[in-house]
Design a protein around this nucleic acid. Structure first.
Lengths: 131, 131
DNA sequence: ATAGGTGCAAACAGTTTGCATGTAT
DNA sequence: ATACATGCAAACTGTTTGCACCTAT
């Protein structure tokens, strides 16, 4: 039975109102606005509860810390801009995805991640070489 | 200028002869057969060198530690068996992958990861409920 | 001889956990 | 009143780094 606390409320607010997946410390930072005393442990405890209730999905990008997004959204994948680090949702999916799965394998879940430049960064050629 | 050492040799041997991506500790374990004194730090130092020379690619699966595979193989993706944890290469790619990338975005790289059951585990229904 | 590689242990980042306290019920 | 949530700090895992030592060149 989930008890209603200021911290829990703050975390729910953050998770439900973000437009891109967030990391634990990003969630902490935002939740602290509503519940300034909060520590990381509380964030992780809530994240894990949401995860095991299936209300949250971990989103991982190569070499980056784990981010989380709420489930129940339309099926989608992600685009990570290598220049600004921003994450974008790519709605929909690819048609013949399972064509690459050999006979005998039983696919149950998949992830497609695309890396590159977002429209904003793609138009700023100077940024391209900003390490 | 890369100096030729027993440890470096051992690591090369391991990286070049494995058929699936390996984690740092797996690499250490295998390399220790040839160079028993070796520590993790050396493994990471070599991995990082290979990475920045572009001879190695990190392979990450949701919730798992980073694995590495040599570059230069034919384009492929990965299948992670949720039952036995084994990783399989899926040769080839999907046709209309970029159809999910909206106009303005510049895709430069992508990853497709499929999770499920490998042929062996798929035929052992008892395993399905392990855990 | 010397630059560079190595092992060890300490330092780090991200995440989890134990415990005493605080609080919603 | 009591069970559960919290904060803090310690523990843990995966990775990096500093330093004294060793070794291929």
């Amino acid at each position: 039975m989930m008890r209603r606390t200021k911290q829990g409320e703050a975390i729910s607010r953050v998770l439900e109102n973000c437009r891109a997946p967030l990391s634990a410390v990003e969630i902490l930072a935002r939740a602290k606005v509503l519940a300034p005393e909060m520590g990381v442990a509380t964030v992780y405890r809530h994240l894990n509860r949401w995860l095991q209730e299936g209300k949250l999905t971990p989103v991982e990008f190569a070499g980056e810390t784990c981010r989380y997004e709420t489930t129940g959204r339309a099926h989608h994948h992600h685009f990570l801009c290598r220049e600004c680090g921003e994450v974008f949702e790519l709605p929909g999916c690819v048609a013949g995805l399972h064509s690459i799965v050999p006979a005998g394998f039983v696919p149950r879940q998949h992830e497609i991640t695309i890396y590159g430049a977002c429209p904003h960064c793609a138009n700023q050629p100077e940024n391209t070489h900003a390490d």
